[in-house]
Design a protein around this nucleic acid. Structure first.
Lengths: 204, 204
DNA sequence: CCCTTTCACTAACGGACGTTAGTTTGTTCG
DNA sequence: CGAACAAACTAACGTCCGTTAGTGAAAGGG
């Protein structure tokens, strides 16, 4: 009834975050109970409080960490990308899709459970999402200025592109028919050229 | 303490559905409590059970009704549309967006609260969604067969299109900068032509 | 105008929830 | 090797949950 043999703080903390993410993804934040989480981690519900401050804090931490990683990796990917607008857009699309397919659970939680966040936490995450969107808007603006894109409203277009790309998370299965590269290729073509073929078009 | 003056069954039932939809949309199905719902309707929590069987049934009814309306209206819109693939796709896009912008709350609930449904209810709704998607896949298949579309994978393309169009719900505000017609136009251009302009392209 | 039906009420049940308090035991490090 | 810390335990608190039971007054059709 005291500390258990072989227990390790960091290991338990990591397990809580890993299991918590999976449970919130599968059942929703409100539907997941701390007793359920604790049972899957292999400890008592009260013991969770050695590692988290509140249930709400766990949710915020998970989302916040995800957003920070997304922003950092995106900055890195764009820094490596060429300056030419179409190639730069290709790089953004590839990065966005690969990241989102690999972090499916995090993406779902960050998108679907925002409303469960308290106002201040909510505002923080929304600001980070806005920053992320701004990357794409700026990229599109630059392309329009260079005459590479025929877009009337770069912000709405950015929203449309992001919605389309992120949507791939909802059906993609690693063991499915398509590879990640094929998903990237298909969506890149959609974003760049749409459904209607044109003379002189080059694809792939 | 019996029946209250001016009470009307159908009116209360309608209010429960209307308020319930709004609360589930704003707070999530698990987070919304029946006491909260009852308070906004103006009755006691126990009185809800004169109109609903369980909380779960209320959710299912709301989603099911929405899906039936969506399917019916889509069939009607496609029946009225011309046979030419591009025009047919335009009609689908316009109908999807207008319907989804007008039924924002229903769309959110039907997409985000699916996991709160019991297995059988869940299966029913998923089947209806599949039917809806099939409309677009068939439309794209016909267009590919006619040489009107340059698409490699009509199913994935359909998913991508639907994700993009439905995404407009997340930012659209009736009092915002863009009219519904402008949203339709912008998304139609995106779906048909993408971001990169081509020689001889006609838009609008 | 009465009689049935409808629709609200009050009261409460059993259980689950997030969280706190207090205790005990293993781990770690000077 | 013993003190200080870490991390688990049991027990419980107060609250809220969805839901049921039982009752009585208003509504509405003949």
């Amino acid at each position: 009834m005291g500390r258990t043999v072989g227990s390790s703080g960091p290991r338990t903390a990591a397990a809580i975050r890993r299991v918590g993410l999976r449970l919130i993804y599968r059942r929703g934040f409100e539907a997941m109970t701390l007793r359920e989480l604790a049972a899957e981690v292999g400890i008592q519900a009260a013991s969770l409080y050695n590692h988290i401050r509140t249930k709400q804090d766990l949710l915020f931490d998970l989302i916040h960490e995800h957003m920070e990683a997304l922003l950092a990796q995106t900055q890195a990917a764009l820094a490596d990308a060429p300056a030419e607008p179409v190639e730069r857009l290709r790089a953004f699309i590839a990065h966005h899709i690969v990241y989102h397919l690999e972090k499916k659970q995090e993406v779902f939680v960050a998108n679907f459970e925002l409303r469960a966040l308290e106002p201040q936490h909510y505002a923080t995450i929304i600001a980070m999402r806005r920053t992320y969107e701004e990357n794409l808007v700026a990229l599109l603006d630059a392309g329009v200025a260079a005459g590479a894109f025929g877009i009337r409203d770069t912000r709405i277009t950015a929203y449309a592109i992001l919605a389309m790309l992120t949507g791939a998370c909802t059906w993609y299965k690693p063991e499915g028919r398509l590879t990640k590269a094929e998903v990237v290729e298909l969506h890149t073509d959609m974003v760049l050229y749409g459904c209607v073929p044109h003379s002189g078009e080059k694809r792939g």
